[in-house]
Design a protein around this nucleic acid. Structure first.
Length: 230
DNA sequence: ACCCAGGGTCATA
DNA sequence: TATGACCATGGG
């Protein structure tokens, strides 16, 4: 089985996801940190608090007392840890000259640089690269592992980097002879990766989360999800 | 009451 | 390198 046919099934079933939910690149980056191991609904409250406090900018986040920052992002959980991570990130962001300067960096450099921030791991970095900087980077998350491991398209102990490379290379290759059913707009890698990851989350959130390790999910006919079969 | 969510760091072996 | 503890809120 290839990766594009799976994408097409998901896309047909769930439709366009319009990710990332966020107004500006910086808001997207803040969301990426806040959503670590956290339900998005809780992140929205935290971001709403930041917006109400006019604190959706790196300068403000760095000036405000850390206690206050932690209080605003409280609904997102881990608020003490995340307050520190947000400050680390904002310090880095301003030191590098902000969005205009950062977007000039090539993707590999930018990724390496993002990973140097304490509190930004591989997935958060890739969220930021794909959704805030629009780079062709495929985001791997728990849903991706779960779903594609069941499809036999991911090894069990496969490392993050390895899996990401395989997805990026595999999709790039499949894009050279795109199936007719593939939406024209999604023949661009950034658009495709954007939509694909969003669809994986949508699928993981609804149908596929029957049980943490539902053995037949997405594979057998007993599974409530008939979406990705074959 | 329990399980989980759009992870990451740090200490230990 | 590979586990385990830890962080913490809110919904099902």
């Amino acid at each position: 089985m290839r990766l594009l046919p799976v994408f097409i099934r998901l896309h047909e079933h769930y439709g366009p996801q319009h990710w990332w939910p966020g107004e500006t690149p910086f808001e997207i980056m803040v969301g990426a940190v806040l959503t670590q191991n956290t339900a998005w609904a809780n992140v929205e409250r935290a971001i709403a608090n930041l917006r109400r406090a006019r604190a959706l900018e790196p300068e403000r986040i760095l000036r405000v007392p850390p206690r206050a920052l932690a209080a605003w992002i409280r609904p997102a959980g881990y608020f003490n840890v995340k307050a520190r991570r947000l400050r680390n990130f904002c310090r880095w962001y301003l030191e590098r000259g902000g969005y205009q300067a950062l977007k000039k960096e090539d993707t590999a450099t930018l990724r390496h640089d993002l990973l140097s921030v304490n509190g930004v791991g591989p997935e958060t970095a890739d969220d930021i690269l794909l959704y805030a900087f629009e780079r062709p980077v495929f985001v791997i998350d728990a849903y991706t592992r779960r779903i594609f491991s069941r499809l036999g398209l991911a090894e069990d102990g496969e490392g993050y980097e390895h899996l990401r490379r395989r997805f990026e290379a595999g999709l790039e290759k499949e894009l050279r002879r795109p199936p007719a059913a593939l939406d024209g707009a999604c023949r661009d890698r950034v658009r495709l990766f954007n939509e694909y990851h969003a669809l994986i989350v949508a699928h993981g959130k609804t149908v596929c989360r029957v049980r943490p390790n539902c053995p037949g999910c997405c594979l057998s006919r007993a599974c409530p999800s008939k979406i990705i079969q074959d």
